[in-house]
Design a protein around this nucleic acid. Sequence first.
DNA 1: ATTGAAACGAACGATGG
DNA 2: CCATCGTTCGTTTCAAT
Lengths: 172, 172
Amino acid sequence: MDRIDTQIVDELQRDARIPLRDLAEVVGVAASTCSERIRRLERRGIITGFHADVDLVALGRPVQALVSTQVRPLSRQFIERFYDDAMAMPEVIAVFVLAGGDDFLLHVGVGDVQQLHSFLVDKLSNRKEVTQFRSSIIFTQGQKRSLENLRSIGMVGEVDRNSGRTTRTSRS
Amino acid sequence: MDRIDTQIVDELQRDARIPLRDLAEVVGVAASTCSERIRRLERRGIITGFHADVDLVALGRPVQALVSTQVRPLSRQFIERFYDDAMAMPEVIAVFVLAGGDDFLLHVGVGDVQQLHSFLVDKLSNRKEVTQFRSSIIFTQGQKRSLENLRSIGMVGEVDRNSGRTTRTSRS
DNA sequence: ATTGAAACGAACGATGG
DNA sequence: CCATCGTTCGTTTCAAT
C-alpha cells in the first residue's frame, strides 16, 4: 500500500471503468504496471470487487428506513441467526451489528409505506427473539462513493517519540 | 425497465467488469444490444456509476461507529449546513437524515478508538447546533452489493381492481 | 519492480439490415 | 434487436533496465 496503490484505489473508487491509460497517466506509471498493480490489489483482498450503483427508485425502493432492533437473548447463536435471516430478506439493504443500546440496525428499502409496515409487523414482530424495535424514515442519504485512505492523509495516530503516547490529532 | 434491463442491472451490480459477451449470453441478447442498453441505463440515471469496493481496514479505518445526532434548531438551513459539513469530514462514510427521534445518523470509520473519541469531542461537541449524540461501535456489518428490483419479484403494491386499495402482500 | 513494444482478443460507436 | 466493421482499449508476454 504505497502512494501508487493508494492513488489507484482512489481513482477506481471514483470510477471503476476509467481507461487504463488515463489511470496510468494520473498515477505516473506505465499502463502495464497499472494493470499488474490492480490485479495484485484484488488478489490481496484490498479491492474487494467492482459494482454498479443503481438508483433505488428505479429498483422499486423509494421508501427507506433505519430500524433499530433489540434481540434477546443476546447469544452468539441468536445474533448470527438473526443476522443471516435479515440479510436474506429482500427489503434489507444493510445490517449493522452494534455494541451498546440497540443490538442491530437494519437499513431497509421498500416500495411504499404499506410494505414498510408489513415488513415491521409481519417479519420483525413475529420473531420471538426481537424484543423491541424503533424505525426512522430516511429523508435523504449521502453515501461516500470514494473513501480516502486515512493513513495517506496523516490521520492515523503515530507514537509520539517523546511522550510515548499515541497522538490523536486530526490534521484534516 | 423491462426484464432485460433488470437482468443487466442485476449482473452489473454483482460484477461491474463482467465481459460484455458473458453478460449478453446470460441476458439472452446480442452483445451490441447489451452495450446499447447499458449506455441507455446510464443516460437515464438508473445506473449512477461504477465503483470499486475497498477493504476498510486497508484504508486505515478498522474502527467503525454509528452516531445518532440531534440538531437544534431543526430548520432547513441548519440541516443542510450540518449535512454538508458532515459529508466533508474525512471520518464520515455516510450521512442519513431521518424523521423521528434523532435527526441524523452518521456512519464513521476511523483508525482507532482515540480518533473516534477525537471526532466526537472535537468535531461534534464543538458545534452549537448539536444538542446531543449517542454512538455505537459496529461489530460487524453486511452491505448488500446487489439489490433486487422489488418490482420484478412482485413486491410492489398493485391497485386491486375490486377494492381500489393497494395490496401490501409481500410474496417473497 | 518497472518499462515499452508487440500481439491477440475484447469493447466501443456507428451503420445498415 | 442484430450483425458487421474499423478503431480503440485491455491484457499478457518478454527483453531490458
